[in-house]
Design a protein around this nucleic acid. Sequence first.
DNA 1: ATCCAGGAATTTT
DNA 2: AAAATTCATGGA
Length: 283
Amino acid sequence: MKEIIVKDFSLTNTLESGQFFRYTRLGDGAFLVNHKDVLFVIKQKKDKLSFSKNVTEKFIKDFFRLDDDLISIYKKISTDPYIIEAINKYWGMRLIRQDPWECLVSYICSSASNIPKIQKNVESLSKYFGRPITCNNYTSYSFPEINTLNDFDKILGSKTGYRAKFLYEVNHLVSTAYFEKLKKEKVYEKAQKTLLKLPGVGKKIADCVMLFSLNHLTSFPADTWIQKVLREQYDVHTNSYDKMRNYAANKWGEHAGYAQQYLYMNARNQKKEYENQKKQRSI
DNA sequence: ATCCAGGAATTTT
DNA sequence: AAAATTCATGGA
């Protein structure tokens, strides 16, 4: 295992924040993480982050955005008690820098779905279209490469339902060059416009892809959870996606994406806590 | 059976 | 441009 010293970083909060799908918790507090054609083990003990030798320090720093100045970001998004509470609860949670193609496919699967099901979809697609990869004694499959999702029945067999035709079509609408060009587009509206042309991609999913893989930190994916938070905590009563985005842009500006992740995590875990309490009562 | 889960596409105002 | 309607899947 290699080791680096990190500050203001929580591996658990980052991996379990719902933004990324291919990871499993190992017994000893370590995680097995799968991304593109890489499978690696990673573990954190306080400020020590250790990871398997098949990945470089550079990769880890890039993937977990360890160069983001989190303290500075916290200062900018600490606009009210509600978000400050969320930051304190999930201190060290960072955005993950995903591969755009993997991110796009994952989030097309996400529409009107839930996290366990999305994970199942992505794993199944990897089994059908990826190749076996290993790390230590663990095995998994690489994520399918661009233009390899060519078998509609297998996509449907991955339980992707009505999203299968979107995946099948998107597969041949994009390319490595497509994403290289997209990565260079720093104007939010232009990148969004490009993504919205893809079938199965609306504003919410476009925001996810831009935030989680294209470095647009101003993106503010407003899913049902975020909409609930805006309604109940910020008195934003609208069904207009653009109005919600504008509200976030005015309030949190350049770092609306980070604000979103903390608000989302908080809202989602409050429901989890409620369900656990309910489970406790029924025993 | 019924409802929900991190929406998109289409049609209608 | 914004709102309402339709579509659609697996799991609890």
